[in-house]
């Protein structure tokens, strides 16, 4: 039973990692960021590239991927999203386009493959990201055997959640973000530079996705389409948790993770997946705003 709960916890932490960034951009900025999954993918590729070209391990990849994806996020915000605030459906379409562009960029090796140049670590194939021996195998906690890599993921996930909570609730930037979530115009009227804060928020959300990507690289297969199923899971968590609510996302990820693990343990994985979707549908029907909707004023 302990190991089933542990698996639920780790499934939940994988969900939360992807959803965390999404919860912030979707919640704070009202942008349905379809390119969020591609940020995860970029994080994973950053890991592959830093290990093949710079010989750096997963530890270095965490900050590097955060910075790289945050910069890409900033660029996307500056070029595209900035012009689309308040137009929810347009952001959906535009960011979907961005997602396709990023995928093809990786697949075509930034266009170099047209000239017959091949960059190791890019291209359409499956990439191999090796994980250090410290994280392979199992660890014994209270007499039970646990997968070390999953423990590591849960820890990093907890750390990222903690940092996000700290920024959102203990810093002045966070306070400004929360003010924008409540009412963007009123916040602007109070002297908050909405554009600047939005740009920073989007960059931070993208950076979180990049960190998620690093962890996924050691866990799943790295290839250009890898993020499509993940971003769906991310949206499920955000929708169940309630838009803009950090605590809602945490609880929703935990809930969906545990439901998945328990049903998979009792029945099988195929049914578990269906039950997870059923829970999501039920939540939307009963509480259309999610479990912990942030009140807008």
């Amino acid at each position: 039973m302990v190991d089933t709960l542990f698996i639920g916890l780790s499934v939940g932490s994988v969900l939360l990692l992807v959803a965390l960034g999404l919860a912030i951009t979707y919640g704070a900025m009202g942008v349905i960021n379809m390119a969020h999954g591609e940020m995860v993918m970029l994080g994973a590729y950053t890991t592959v590239m830093t290990s093949t070209w710079l010989g750096l391990g997963i530890w270095w990849s965490l900050p590097i991927a955060f910075v790289v994806t945050a910069l890409v996020g900033l660029l996307i915000e500056r070029l595209i999203i900035r012009r689309l605030y308040g137009r929810l459906l347009d952001t959906l379409l535009a960011t979907w386009g961005v997602a396709i562009l990023i995928q093809q960029m990786i697949r075509l090796e930034f266009g170099l493959s047209f000239f017959g140049i091949h960059i190791q670590g890019l291209g359409p194939g499956l990439q191999n990201m090796s994980i250090p021996d410290v994280l392979a195998g199992t660890i014994n906690i209270f007499g039970a055997e646990f997968n070390k890599y999953r423990v590591f993921m849960i820890l990093v996930c907890a750390l990222m959640t903690g940092v996000t909570w700290f920024i959102m609730y203990k810093t002045s930037v966070g306070m400004q973000v929360r003010a924008i979530i409540r009412n963007a115009r009123m916040a602007a009227a109070c002297g908050i530079d909405v554009k600047r804060v939005n740009a920073l928020t989007f960059a931070f959300g993208s950076g979180l996705a990049g960190v998620a990507g690093v962890l996924m690289a050691g866990f799943k297969t790295v290839f250009p389409d890898m993020s499509t199923p993940m971003v769906v899971d991310g949206f499920l968590v955000v929708v169940v948790g309630g838009i803009g609510s950090l605590i809602g996302s945490i609880l929703a990820a935990g809930l969906l993770g545990q439901v998945n693990a328990l049903v998979a343990w009792g029945h099988n994985d195929v049914i578990a997946r269906a039950v997870v979707f059923a829970v999501v549908i039920l939540t939307i029907v009963l509480k259309p705003n999610g479990l912990f909707a942030y009140k807008r004023r």
Binding site: D3, T4, I7, S10, V11, V14, N147, R150, F219, K220, T221, P229, N260, A261, A264, W265, N268, D269, V270, A272, R273
Partner: peptide
Amino acid sequence: YLELGDSEWGSMVN
């Protein structure tokens, strides 16, 4: 069975 393309193997391997 696991859904095609799904890579959450925790429960199955357990």
